[in-house]
Simulated assay, not measured.
Amino acid sequence: MENDRQTRHAAVPPPPTLPASARQPINRCNLPAVILGSLSFQRHPVALEIDGIRDLHAGLFQMLDGLPEPLDRAQRFMDYMTVRFLLDEPEEAGSMPNGTKPARIKANYRRLVRGWSFDSDGREGAVLKRWVESRFGLLARHHAGSLLDRHSDGYQRYLYEGSRGLYATNALESQLDLLYAYCQYELVRTQPEQTHVSLYRGINRIDEHEILERADRSRYRVLLNNLNSFTRERERADEFGDYILEVAVPLAKVFFYNQLLPGLLRGEDEYVVIGGVYEVRMSTL
């Protein structure tokens, strides 16, 4: 009887660490949000794939397999994006001719990444956070203010900005799908034995984040926004706050980093990271 009780107890999974209020019941990924957003995923990550993307663009990745140099692969990827999504031919993508086309047709993955780097609470940031909600099922927690109250004016503005940012664009979310898939391809190709990367963020107070638990004096378990910026340079993080958060981020949760497409971003070695529950360490210099 004792063995039976132990067996039944062992079969009960631990409660999820990702609160229900931070996730959607469905997504377009190979893992549900409750798993990919959990502390267990940070500790034991696996590959994440958006449904159908690698199959739909199999020819691109087969071509990249034959290129040994990262710079050549990056250029081929950008060329593919230009041709596939008609980025230089907006009329062919359905835009109206004779100068009457909406200005938003010029929005593309490159402008979104640049816009995020300039202001993550701007229109581009809203589009990217809505994309994470759709693809990974992780709800945004902050955008120019708290989003915890789904009836607030701030939340309605967030929805408006996200929808406005997609209006009259050419398959912008599909461009982001492929950008994420390419990022993951490059990380596996260039760092095949690595599962995590140590990243840093400067803060002034730990309560700037949603704290779920304090593990010890310097370690916290926090719920991060569904998309976040970090840097790989600890010294750079120190410029943005009195304290430094250090976090081991699964490579599977890296959406973009500034060396992925040379010339797109410059400066602080930025990494754009999908959120969820993370254990972080807070320290000073």
Rank of each mutant, 00 (worst) to 15 (best):
G202W: 01
S134Q: 11
R234E: 12
R281Q: 14
P15Q: 13
Q75S: 13
L139Q: 07
R217F: 10
P13T: 06
N98W: 15
E268Y: 06
F240I: 01
R8G: 00
R157G: 00
D269G: 10
P45S: 07
D153R: 13
W116H: 00
R5S: 11
K253P: 09
D88A: 14
R114N: 13
V127Y: 06
D65S: 11
E186Y: 04
G145N: 04
E208H: 02
A33Y: 03
A47R: 13
Q191E: 14
N225T: 02
E233C: 06
R5V: 13
F256I: 07
Y200M: 09
R130S: 05
S229V: 04
L260R: 06
L212N: 02
Q191L: 14
R281H: 13
Y182G: 04
A10F: 12
N3A: 13
Y278I: 09
A107S: 11
V277A: 06
R266K: 12
A126L: 03
R150P: 03
T190Y: 08
R8W: 08
E91F: 10
F118C: 00
N108W: 06
P19L: 08
A20Q: 12
Q62N: 15
L260Q: 03
A181K: 09
Y257S: 03
L223I: 09
S283A: 14
L128R: 05
R111P: 00
A171D: 02
K106Y: 04
H44A: 14
L48H: 05
Y180L: 09
E69N: 09
N30K: 11
E161Q: 14
V197D: 01
E173V: 05
N204A: 12
R150E: 14
S21W: 12
I203F: 08
S120E: 14
D269P: 02
L245A: 03
L67A: 03
S40A: 14
D269W: 01
H44P: 00
L285D: 14
A11D: 15
P25W: 02
F41P: 03
A140H: 06
V273R: 06
F77K: 06
R28C: 11
H57T: 04
E124H: 13
R114M: 14
V127R: 03
T231C: 08
Y271V: 12
R164D: 15
N204I: 07
E208C: 07
Q156V: 09
R164T: 09
K106N: 00
A144K: 11
L261S: 07
N98A: 15
L176A: 04
V46W: 01
E235M: 03
L87M: 12
L18V: 05
A171V: 02
C183M: 05
P13C: 08
S198M: 13
Y271G: 05
N225M: 00
H143N: 01
L71N: 14
N170R: 03
E69Q: 15
N98C: 15
W116A: 05
M78E: 13
A168N: 14
P90T: 02
R54M: 10
L138C: 06
G145Y: 08
G59I: 00
Q191W: 11
E91Y: 07
R84E: 15
V222A: 02
N258E: 15
A103Y: 10
L128M: 15
I53K: 02
R219Q: 07
V273S: 07
A11Q: 13
P32N: 09
V249C: 07
M63V: 09
R28W: 09
L148Q: 10
